[in-house]
Every structure is written in structure tokens, then in C-alpha cells.
Design a protein around this nucleic acid. Structure first.
Length: 581
RNA sequence: GCGCUCGUAGCUCAAUGGAUAGAGCACUUGAUUACGGAUCAAGCGGUUAGGGGUUCGAGUCCCUUCGAGCGCGCCA
């Protein structure tokens, strides 16, 4: 057990209290009712079997003198709560320190991790739909944040480029001719192509037979013609994906592709290793591993099938190979899988088996970063007007189109090219923010009007706050960087300035909070609150017409720091902060 | 049947086991000769699905009932 006095001093350490937050035992945080509240005394009281109020008083007696310089008031509030109110000088000093930092006061991980993050994962020769929106947007935001705090992040786009549908798809290519297939696929009509193949497969037994034989040829890996057609399908699809990623503005490129097929060579190894460990059992003709804790419909133990009856591999084998590859070759120590919630049981079983086999062992950790569905206003899976799954590309186009209408209305004088770029920034930002701003685990309701509104918790509201700051500097013809160079003293004379300063200092804990839980909505909430604090400041505290020069310089500094936090924060979400809109 | 994830204001959503459960939208009322009104200030709105339990303290953890969605061996 830790010495309670040590814990107490740690708890109230001024540098720690100012930013409110991140650590193995965070017990101090910003509060609306005081600048910081400390409630760790209760935990200590519990351990020692003492009265919480007495412990709080003891903490106060111990820490009070040390805090006298930085706190204007320290008081016991409630049975174990300490309320700390910081002095303006202390806050100003903390803010100056944060503003001078490229990371705006966000501390880097002491021991950077090597993170492998698996996200997006569309299927070859299949259209991306809204389901891919969440994994792509969430995965990308997490990637940016982990990189920001110093981790090494390896992106892997586990595209579906293998499996039984490819027999059917390749036969369809052969039927309609290579050129026509290429023409159809390159315009991005992946669904039409897939549907045509599927229809033939369902209707024509002879075609089915050809498709099955073609799968065997593909998997035997030595039929040049089959491989050529397969490569063509993969290449055309990935080119199409790349255009969508560029449109969406995510970090993924073709360099990040790590399709299922790339683990084929490891599949026999998976079986061999499981076999030699004695984990593999024959069951109903298949080779399986029984992981404890999983049962089927009848209440019997549920196996993870690694090798199918008759010798084929399925995605469980592929995912196990994937774990081996990511741990042993890539040397990741944190494996993130940004995949929908319906896969929860699958990943639980794969991780369990990987643990049993010793492939996943501390400190290496695998996390299924799961997420809920995107719903329409009817609370059912989001569909297009025609009732089909909404295509990713259509969704992005509509977002940009809707934003373009608003941009044209508000900025009629801007050149067309600039309007178009703004529409893209605003439309795409709105889609991403709508997705990121709610708890990923829950389903969320997709609503065009709400996400593109300029008020409420939306990206346009955040972008607008940034624009207003840029506008101040533009009007005054002051370079933002010049404020950073002169480093004026920050004065916190009004409640709005004080609230803004405290919020700016909480950027660090917002980022870490988000990373600890892999929950981007926490950063969204922070940025929204920051934008609200800023607009309140903007309304009440004239900057350029401040009553004296010192106040003006101070407020310019607050503006610049706010703009940088907004810009940086939005960038961590994959959203651009424009200078005008 | 078993399992997973949910259930918070009229609507959309927040809330590390901590103080009087907070925002936004909508609605009502105010504010502009200020740096972009794409705004701000205020009001209205709650038995956190129901019931037990653990705890100094529960929206949060445990049990249970109800409701919703999704999974449950050779697709991925």
C-alpha cells in the first residue's frame, strides 16, 4: 500500500492540479464550482478506516502551506472534497508555459508505445457504405492522437481481398471480358459489378460450379491467369478506395494496405503452433480450439474454428495469423481493432486463443475498439432514399453539396474555387464530427440538418469560433506569431477570461482522457466547451478596442492560444479549421 | 434459450464511483452605433426504464424484471 502522505502530496502537487489530470491515479480535476477539486481524501479515509472529514482536514493541513502560493482559497467542501481556487498569476504562468509549447501543454507518453491500428477494412469489389464511415473516421482520429502524444503508429487497412466470393467475381470478369470489367470498376460502380456476379451465382448452377473451382485455383496460388484477374480486381478497388480516402481526408494510403491475403503464408503456421501446444482439437471434421467461457445455442462449449472440414481456412485463422504478425514481425505492443460491435464475440475468442497460445502476453495488449451503428431518423440502419445501403461516396458528396449551399449564401463574394474548398472542409468536417462526437459504443442518429447547423455541438460551430479569431487578427493586421514572440502578460480580470484560461489549460487532460478510453467524443466535448467559452469571451471582452494596451495584448494572446488549441484539436479529429468561412 | 451492447429532459447527446445529473436543439424572454448575429444572456424542461443490493456516496458497480439492437461452429 502506498504511503497515504505521499499520495496526498502527489494529489495536491500544484503542477498536477493546474491541468487537472492524467495519471494512474487522477484525483484532481477542473470543476465548475472551483478551479479544481480533489476528492482523493475519501479513498484514503476508506483505506485507513478514518472519518473522511478528518482526513480532508489533515490533507489541508499538510498541503495548505505548499499551495499557498498558487491558490487563493483552499477549502473543505463536503465530507472529503477540497476546493482549490488558483491565483490569476499562477494560471497566467501555466498558460504562458503551455502557449510556448508546440503541443500546447499536452505531455508526451513517458514510454511511447508501438501501436498497430486496424481500421477501415473495406472489401475488394464491394462498395464502401456508411458502416465503413465509423471505423475509418474513428480509426483515423485515434491514429492522429496517438501520434500526437509520441507513439509510433502503424496503420493497417485489413481489406477483404480473399475468400470464397472471389471465385464468383473472377468468373464474372472472365464472362464480361477484362476490358469491360475494368471500365465498370474504375468508375467506381463496385456494387453493380458485385451484384451482377452474385445474381449469376444464385441463378446458374453451372456458374456456381465454375466459381468453386476458381476459388481452388486462386488458393492454390499457381494459376497465373487466376492470379492476374484477382490482382486486377484488387488494384481497381484499392484505387477507388484511395480516391475516397483522399476525399474524406484521412491518413490511409495504399501503403497501409494489409489485406487478408497477406497473411496466407502464416495460416499453416497458426495450425502447426496450436497443434504443438496441444490446443487444437478435431471436432466434426474441423480443427478447432475450445476457449473457456464461450457457449453455443445448446449451452455446449463453442469452438473457434481454425481449419474448416476439408482443409480450408476461415477468418478466425486469418485473424490469429494477424496477431502473430503484428506482435512478432511488426513488434506492436498495443493492437487496436476498430471494428463494429457485432464482432465482439469473434474478437473475444480470437484474443483468448491468442493468449492461450502465448502470442498475446503482457505487456502486449489487444483491444477491440468497437462501435455502434449509424441510424436514420427512423432509428433503423441508415438507408438511401431508394432503400439501399447508403454508399460512402454518395454520403460525402451530399455533405459537400449541402455545405456548398450554405457557403454560397454566406460568402457570395469568395471566388468559386475557394467556395468549393470551403464546402469540402465544412461538409466533410461535419460528417466526421457528427460521427466522432457521440460515444462510439452507442448507435447514433444521422441527421443532415443537425450536423451542418452552425450552432450546437457541431463542427461548423467550432470552425466558426476559429474563423472569428482569425478575423480579429486579419482586421488588426497583426500576425498571430508576433503575439507569441512578444509573450505579453496574461490578465484574467473578467470571469470570461478566467474561464477561457482554465479551459485552455485542460487541453492536456482532454487529450489523454480521449486516448485512455479510445473515445474521440471526449475531445469533441472539450473543444465544444472551449468554443463556447471563447464566444462568451468574444462577446464580453473587446480585444482590439480594449480599454488599455496591456489588456489588448493579453486578450490577443488568449485569442491566439485558443485558435491554436482549436486548430490542433480539430486536426486530431481529422477536421480542418479554415481561416474564413 | 445463451451471450454481448444499450435504455438519461419533448428531440439529439454528455457526465473517472463524488457535490444540487449537465449541454445543444426546440420553445419563451431579453441583448446589436464592438473584433463576422453563422452570436450572446436568461428561463422552461428529470422518479437517470422499474425494483432490490454494495458503498460515507450509485446514472455509473452487483442481482433482477421490462424494453431495444446485435451476435450465437465451418461467409468474412
Amino acid at each position: 500500500m502506498a504511503d497515504p502522505v505521499v499520495t496526498v502530496s502527489h494529489l495536491l502537487e500544484p503542477a498536477f492540479t493546474a491541468v487537472g489530470g492524467h495519471g494512474s491515479d487522477p484525483v484532481v480535476r477542473p470543476s465548475d464550482r472551483a478551479d479544481a477539486q480533489a476528492n482523493g481524501a475519501l479513498a484514503i479515509a476508506k483505506r485507513l478506516g478514518q472519518n473522511p472529514r478528518q482526513v480532508a482536514e489533515a490533507v489541508l493541513a499538510l498541503a495548505g502551506p505548499a499551495l499557498a502560493d498558487v491558490c487563493s482559497t483552499i477549502e473543505i467542501a463536503g465530507p472529503g472534497f477540497l476546493n482549490l481556487t488558483f491565483t490569476d498569476e499562477f494560471l497566467a504562468a501555466q498558460l504562458a508555459e503551455a502557449a510556448a509549447d508546440d503541443r500546447l501543454g499536452v505531455r508526451c507518453e513517458v514510454a511511447p508505445k508501438r501501436v498497430v491500428i486496424d481500421y477501415s477494412a473495406p472489401n475488394v469489389a464491394k462498395e464502401m457504405h456508411v458502416g465503413h464511415l465509423r471505423t475509418t473516421v474513428i480509426g483515423d482520429a485515434l491514429t492522429r492522437m496517438l501520434m500526437f502524444v509520441g507513439d509510433t503508429v502503424i496503420r493497417e487497412n485489413h481489406i477483404g481481398d480473399w475468400g470464397t466470393p472471389f471465385g464468383m467475381l473472377i468468373e464474372h470478369v472472365i464472362d464480361i471480358g477484362e476490358d469491360q470489367a475494368a471500365a465498370g470498376l474504375s468508375v467506381g460502380d463496385l456494387d453493380g459489378f458485385y451484384r451482377a456476379a452474385r445474381a449469376k451465382f444464385d441463378a446458374d448452377p453451372a456458374f456456381q460450379d465454375r466459381a468453386r473451382k476458381r476459388v481452388v485455383l486462386l488458393q492454390s496460388d499457381d494459376d497465373l491467369e487466376t492470379t492476374k484477374f484477382w490482382q486486377m480486381l484488387v488494384e481497381l478497388s484499392t484505387q477507388y478506395f484511395a480516391t475516397l480516402y483522399a476525399k474524406l481526408g484521412v491518413l490511409l494510403t495504399n501503403d497501409d494496405l494489409a489485406g487478408e491475403s497477406s497473411y496466407n503464408h502464416l495460416l499453416p503456421t497458426v495450425v502447426e503452433r496450436l497443434e504443438s501446444l496441444g490446443l487444437l482439437e478435431e471436432n466434426d471434421g474441423a480443427k478447432v480450439v475450445f476457449a473457456p467461457g464461450f457457449t453455443n445455442r445448446e449451452g455446449d462449449p463453442l469452438p473457434l474454428i481454425v481449419e474448416k472440414r476439408g482443409g480450408g481456412f476461415n477468418y478466425a485463422a486469418s485473424d490469429l495469423a494477424c496477431v502473430i504478425d503484428r506482435v512478432e514481425r511488426v513488434e506492436g505492443d498495443l493492437l487496436l481493432y476498430v471494428v463494429g460491435a457485432p464482432q465482439a464475440q469473434h474478437f473475444a475468442m480470437v484474443f483468448k486463443v491468442a493468449e492461450m497460445a502465448g502470442w498475446l502476453a503482457p505487456p502486449v495488449q489487444a483491444v477491440h475498439v468497437m462501435f455502434g451503428n449509424v441510424l436514420g431518423s427512423d432509428r433503423k440502419m441508415l438507408k438511401s432514399r431508394s432503400g439501399e445501403p447508403l454508399k460512402f461516396a454518395e454520403l460525402l458528396d451530399e455533405a459537400v453539396g449541402r455545405a456548398a449551399v450554405a457557403v454560397a449564401e454566406k460568402n457570395p463574394d469568395l471566388p468559386a474555387a475557394e467556395q468549393a474548398e470551403l464546402a469540402r472542409i465544412i461538409g466533410i468536417g461535419a460528417v466526421k464530427y457528427a460521427d466522432l462526437s457521440t460515444d462510439r459504443i452507442k448507435d447514433y442518429v444521422f441527421d443532415w440538418d443537425r450536423m451542418l447547423a452552425f450552432d450546437g455541438n457541431t463542427s461548423p460551430y467550432l470552425q466558426y469560433a476559429h474563423v472569428r479569431i482569425c478575423s480579429i487578427f486579419r482586421r488588426a493586421e497583426i500576425e498571430r506569431s508576433s503575439i507569441r514572440d512578444t509573450k505579453p502578460a496574461v490578465l484574467l480580470d473578467t470571469p470570461q477570461e478566467r474561464a477561457l484560461a482554465l479551459r485552455l489549460l485542460a487541453f492536456d487532460s482532454a487529450v489523454w482522457d480521449t486516448i485512455d478510453k479510445f473515445s474521440p467524443h471526449r475531445l469533441c466535448t472539450y473543444l465544444f466547451e472551449l468554443a463556447q467559452d471563447f464566444t462568451a469571451f468574444f462577446e464580453h471582452c473587446p480585444v482590439l478596442k480594449a480599454s488599455n494596451e496591456a489588456t489588448k495584448q493579453s486578450r490577443l494572446s488568449l485569442c491566439d492560444t485558443t485558435a491554436r488549441v482549436l486548430e490542433t484539436g480539430l486536426d486530431l479529429l481529422g477536421i480542418v479549421a479554415p481561416e474564413r468561412m
